[in-house]
Design a protein around this nucleic acid. Structure first.
Lengths: 158, 158
DNA sequence: TGAAATAATTTGTAGCACAAATTATTGAGA
DNA sequence: TCTCAATAATTTGTGCTACAAATTATTTCA
């Protein structure tokens, strides 16, 4: 019942739900765009982190990005398999492995950034340039003072 | 090595990553808070939708909330098992089942809303009241004109 | 009347988080 | 110096969710 076109894609009320919707929109499109260069959003995110923190050890990458160590192993495995990054021994701590981006990885991540920017442009098309700046500012501000993450769960919805 | 406090929890650059971080912060805390009343974020979200659209059929709920039909079945199953909602036959379409919230469900969702508001308060603690209004306005604006969702994937990270 | 579309459902697959255990190594204290 | 707790990477197993595909019942439309 009901005109049926009314309940479709309702704007959520809670901020958490809005974050989720926008993340999902962005994530879906990013995944589709990155597929053309053989990257997933997660692999791209790690590469992009390495772009600025080349030689970080796995634990640092995971801590900074909120990725579980056991998940990191698989991600770095894949980056190595694709020739986009390499593990190398840490100079002083033999437990740790530094992860360095390869030239090929650097080229990939640059193309990925272009694609990610295009997606972001698309997702935020309802906002003009000043509004986008304002939104990013508010998001960063909220995040920087948000309570520490105990390292979450999965689920969906809220 | 390295001061180690520098790479920890870096503020992402892309909007999609910011959405993800904030969603995750919100989701984790919401899940923890709702656990006290026996709800998950997903169950709460469905109940909250029913609060305003009681008697909607499963397909409508799923379409409005972006939840896969097969996932909806499981969610409604659980709401029924917990006595928070019930399926009933659609008056004219025997394929469809209307979902109605029970009095118990209504009480649960009210408590859930209180908890969700507290979490939201916590997550957005870095913003004052005017900034929060502005943020929500921008989020809604972005979402309402965001490109249509082809119904996403899973993954992580973007 | 018959074929395509639709609503709910079931089943199977895949991705990611998480917990727990393992191995190698480090660091700090007795 | 020796010992023990902590740490980095890793493996394995579990659980949750999305998604695809197939099924059944029913509706809609040509």
């Amino acid at each position: 019942m009901a005109p049926s076109s009314e309940a479709d894609t309702e704007i959520p009320e809670f901020a958490g739900q809005l974050f989720f919707r926008l993340w999902r929109a962005s994530h879906t499109q990013t995944a589709a765009a990155l597929e053309s260069i053989g990257l997933t959003p997660a692999l791209f995110a790690v590469l992009d982190f390495l772009r600025a923190h080349d030689g970080a050890i796995q634990q640092e990458i995971g801590a900074a990005m909120g990725i579980d160590p056991s998940t990191m192993v698989a991600l770095i495995d894949e980056l190595e398999r694709a020739g986009l990054a390499k593990r190398r021994p840490h100079p002083t701590d033999r437990r740790a492995r530094e992860v360095v981006i390869t030239p090929k990885g650097r080229r990939s991540v640059e193309r990925g950034r272009t694609l990610a920017c295009e997606v972001e442009d698309d997702v935020l098309q309802g906002l003009d340039s000043a509004e986008r700046r304002q939104l990013l500012k508010l998001l960063r501000q909220a995040l920087s003072s948000a309570p520490p993450q105990p390292l979450w769960s999965s689920d969906e919805g809220d």
